[in-house]
């Protein structure tokens, strides 16, 4: 999962980014003002946008409106020091998905971010199942037939993304874009390493193949026999 934080208070931005990296295992980019925030939001695929309301250059509301006007539908969480009803209504009507008033609790913040990212992928339950595999996105725990698997942080992130897009075909590029932040050099074979590691661990524990490789297209988390729309077409 990859998150963009648009916040002009550098300290707050850093704290928010750190907690998202630590507690939600997200790749986080930070933009210090509205203009740069909008540019970054429109140029990379983010799974969640965290937007401060009072920003230099472009206000949060302007960024939000332009972002939605561009046809982006990733969830947006607004951070604001003002909680007057009119402002909240205006924000939600402009396409925001949720808001938090400063000063907020980081625990609540992370929970809301996770819920928004989940729902952004069309998943409502925090626990995703695929045959014998169970991915708990809150505890960040993976179980196969009730037995807990020990995964590395990157392996978990790859699996979580595939699980949230359960059944769908996910390209290597998509995985790279959604798992690494702006400053990362993107090498496709890194993904192959994680996938093979995941396969070894999951199949070793259950004997069932849940991560399918579609040659030339990418990967999909599904049981054998299920077919994606894209392949059919």
């Amino acid at each position: 999962m990859r998150v963009l934080v648009v916040e002009d208070e550098e300290r707050l931005a850093q704290n928010v980014a750190a907690i998202l990296r630590d507690n939600a295992l997200c790749a986080v980019d930070v933009a210090p003002d509205g203009e740069e925030g909008l540019f970054m939001a429109c140029s990379s695929p983010y799974d969640l946008l965290i937007l401060d309301l009072m920003l230099p250059k472009l206000t949060g509301l302007q960024v939000l409106k332009s972002y939605r006007a561009e046809g982006n539908n990733s969830p947006v969480l607004i951070l604001t020091a003002r909680d007057e009803k009119e402002i909240v209504v205006k924000l939600l009507n402009a396409g925001a998905d949720d808001y938090l008033t400063k000063p907020f609790d980081l625990g609540e913040f992370v929970a809301r971010c996770k819920a928004l990212m989940r729902r952004g992928k069309g998943e409502h339950s925090p626990v995703i199942q695929a045959g014998p595999l169970e991915v708990d996105t809150v505890k960040r725990a993976v179980q196969v037939n009730g037995v807990r698997l020990s995964l590395t942080a990157m392996e978990y992130r790859v699996l979580e993304y595939l699980a949230l897009r359960r059944g769908a075909l996910v390209s290597k590029m998509e995985l790279l874009e959604h798992l690494y932040d702006y400053n990362w050099e993107k090498f496709g074979n890194v993904i192959e390493v994680y996938i093979s590691g995941l396969r070894r661990k999951i199949e070793g524990a259950s004997g069932v193949k849940v991560i399918q490789t579609v040659r030339g297209l990418g990967y999909a988390l599904r049981l054998e026999g299920e077919v994606t729309e894209k392949e059919r077409g």
Partner: peptide, 25 residues
């Protein structure tokens, strides 16, 4: 009042988030 509240809340948000980040692990 609005500006003062904004200023105080933002300062408090920075302080609180720093504290909670420190306590996080």
């Amino acid at each position: 009042l609005g500006d003062a509240a904004h200023e105080l809340k933002t300062s408090l948000a920075i302080l609180k988030s720093t504290l909670q980040r420190l306590l996080n692990k």
